[in-house]
Design a protein around this nucleic acid. Structure first.
Lengths: 217, 217
DNA sequence: TAGATTGTTAATCGATTAACAATC
DNA sequence: TAGATTGTTAATCGATTAACAATC
């Protein structure tokens, strides 16, 4: 072992790992692939890629690639998946069964990507009881008991803001939910023990609107 | 004028500008606001914020804030909007009228944010001719003529991949479309003259899945 | 072997922060 | 005035890249 252990993956590196994984899963034709090749496709420099992959070494493996040959595609995929924790199935609860929530159920193959939607909740009487893609929408006020009784919930996919957000946060904190993918405009900056990634469509449109006027992005 | 002009806004700064704008629009109660206050709310350091705002100076204004007082909320909002180009209306074309596309029409107030959806296209016969939120879905193969005849298209909101993607890119390049907000898995890394921001939900779930196991995000 | 490509170190580049004079 | 907070410079920190020895 050359390293003292545990150079940690930075957020930037984790982001790129998901890009590598997407690319590798789309083109598994080749047995071995070089950092150069991946980089051309994804517009990432090859030293960057080798450096990113070097973080796996001694944490996980002695050596990730083969000198003079490249990285074994399948093996690389597996290793990235293990780091990201998507080698095994994770449980997702969807909050909000509006068209955005429905889109996640119908247009995304979440289960294929190891994200299993084990519950869908909404507070609108119009939606409660309906089936969306084979899943019955439950009343938001049952979330509390559901989450307490269910198997571990890994991620909450949030497409609408719960009426009593404090209570909601208490519940999921107690039950040990550790992550929220947030599509609402609610500000979760104050959370301490729950990882939150917010996707702000308006924000992305605004950024893009700037770049369309100023070249590149 | 103190500066020689045009320190440019970096992608990181542009991203934060959208965060500032969101916060400022949500709480316009105060007349003046300090970098300290904004930073507390958004978990961004106050020197960072002042530095970000300093890029406005001499490009746009002599002075953005008021020493000892803070930034005039309304004025700051306006200035950020002007930089992002959302002080005036921009035209958006939506490609794909599936549930994700529908969500953008029904759950997002795009027009309020100065993004006006002037056309919706899909290639599925089931969807063509239908109305979604008051907009008639057109046949994807009419996109070409539509885009040539219509007023300027600023942004294409892409929720499904056009059958002939080469032709699609030719069309929009010729017509001068400069930006794509991409929700598909298609790789647009090779585009030269069109700004693309891709939102990869799977990727975000994977990142989150990592952070849920390793604390913070 | 010769050619290719890794893993890594050192150099560079860019972004963040600390600190403070200026001043409302 | 005293207190607050800006705008900016210099210092720090972190991320990217260049370069190359190791080696398959």
């Amino acid at each position: 072992m050359k390293k003292e252990f545990q150079k940690n993956f930075s957020p930037k590196v984790i982001e790129r790992l998901t890009e590598y994984l997407r690319y590798l899963e789309e083109c598994p034709e080749e047995n071995y692939i070089s950092a150069e090749k991946i980089g051309k496709e994804l517009k990432i420099s090859s030293p960057q890629i080798r450096k990113d992959f070097s973080y796996f070494i001694s944490r996980d493996v002695e050596k990730l690639g083969v000198t003079g040959k490249g990285y074994h595609t399948q093996y690389l995929c597996e290793k990235i998946k293990m780091i990201l924790g998507v080698h095994k199935t994770n449980n997702v609860v969807l909050l909000g069964a509006g068209s955005l929530g429905s889109a996640f159920l119908s247009e995304y193959h979440l289960a294929k990507k190891k994200f299993n939607v084990i519950g869908v909740f909404d507070s609108s009487p119009k939606k409660i009881g309906k089936k969306i893609n084979g899943v019955v929408v439950k009343n938001m006020n049952e979330l509390d008991s559901f989450i307490k009784l269910s198997e571990k919930v890994d991620i909450i996919l949030l497409t609408s803001i719960p009426a009593d957000i404090e209570e909601f946060l208490n519940t999921i904190t107690l039950k040990g939910v550790k992550a929220i993918l947030n599509f609402t405009t609610h500000n979760f900056n104050f959370l301490k023990d729950i990882a939150v990634i917010s996707v702000d469509i308006y924000g992305k449109l605004q950024e893009l609107n700037y770049w369309k006027n100023h070249g590149i992005a």
